[in-house]
Design a protein around this nucleic acid. Sequence first.
DNA 1: ACTATAGGCAAGTGGCGGCTTGCCTGTCGA
DNA 2: TCGACAGGCAAGCCGCCACTTGCCTATAGT
Lengths: 107, 107
Amino acid sequence: MGDVYQALADPTRRKILDELTERDGQTLFEICARLATRHQITSSRQAISQHLDVLAAAGLVVARRQGRYKFHHLDTRPLQSIAERWLRPEPRQENPHEDQPDQRPGG
Amino acid sequence: MGDVYQALADPTRRKILDELTERDGQTLFEICARLATRHQITSSRQAISQHLDVLAAAGLVVARRQGRYKFHHLDTRPLQSIAERWLRPEPRQENPHEDQPDQRPGG
DNA sequence: ACTATAGGCAAGTGGCGGCTTGCCTGTCGA
DNA sequence: TCGACAGGCAAGCCGCCACTTGCCTATAGT
């Protein structure tokens, strides 16, 4: 299982997710064409294919083979846990700055 | 302004965010010590400092100088827009797979 | 059977990111 | 004032990642 955060790090991969959000279940060539015409991304087909591999490894894209076509579907479930990792509103501990923060005041 | 996604790509930087979530307003040395003892991260002080620079450039960390100390505070606002980018529950368009997806069926 | 299409595998390359190292600035305490 | 401490600047190294290139497999159409 790949790293979801690393998969999101590349701007081209995010554009792919945007594209699949607008129109789910696209083929590789379809994604290439739409990235080129709508986002000025002129990467080769292989580059996009490798990006899709990374997204699939991260669980963000699920591929479905059908004949000679391979349709790519978005799966947003890995994204749900991301923001919650730091956005959980538990009142977190504060650091007593004004004391003497000698590296670790309280051990 | 740096890239929030790229800032989250590095696992050490995510650990720093975890650390600041638990205890906000830590100094550089304090973060180094806690990363070493609690997360087995033995990177040098400079490495952590550069990580904090990246996080600050992405707006995820705000530094506050006070005397010879520099306290780092978490700012989760840049995170809120991340998940919503693809998690907005608008019913997105489906691709008519079973037709003839000749790259782009509808031009 | 032949061709065009959709996609895959693998090797090679260039640039960027993470890390270290060395040295410097600035602040507080005794 | 002097030394310990917190942090900063800059150069250099190295591995990874994105991308290309070349060739291959497989399905669909005629």
